[in-house]
Amino acid sequence: MKNIKIYDLALQWLRQQPNVQSEISAMQDEQSQNQNSARMIDLFTTPTVRWALLITVFLQLSQQLSGINAVIYYSLSIFQSAGFSKEVSSYANLGLGGANIIVTIISVFLMDRLGRRILHLTGLGGMFITSLILVISLLVQPTPFWNMMSLVMTILYVAFFGIGPGSIPWLITAELFSQAYRVPASSIAVLVNWSANFAVGLSFKPLFTDVMHKYTFLLFTGFLLIFFLGTFFFVPETKAKNVETIYAEINAGQVWRKRQPGTHSFENPSGRIDNVGTTVGYQSL
Rank of each mutant, 00 (worst) to 15 (best):
Q12D: 13
K258P: 08
Q64S: 09
F128N: 00
A10R: 14
I68K: 03
L124A: 03
L285A: 14
D274W: 14
E30I: 03
Y181M: 07
V108Q: 02
G162N: 07
R15M: 13
S85L: 01
A189Y: 06
I226Q: 07
L218F: 04
P184R: 02
M111H: 00
D274E: 15
I4Q: 13
Q16T: 09
I6W: 13
T56P: 10
S186G: 11
R39C: 02
F217W: 08
L61G: 08
N193D: 09
L191R: 06
F228C: 08
M212K: 09
V88G: 02
K86E: 12
I78K: 01
F160Q: 00
N34C: 09
R113V: 14
W13C: 11
L156C: 11
I118Q: 07
S150A: 08
G97E: 03
A199L: 15
R182P: 07
V103H: 00
T56F: 07
G115Q: 01
L9R: 14
W51I: 14
T173R: 00
F109P: 06
L171R: 00
V71E: 06
V108W: 05
T45L: 08
V57C: 15
S203D: 08
R272I: 09
V108F: 12
I250R: 04
Q60E: 12
A174G: 10
S178Q: 03
I226S: 11
S150V: 00
E249T: 09
F208D: 00
D29L: 11
F160G: 01
V49Y: 07
G201L: 04
I188H: 12
E244W: 11
Q179S: 12
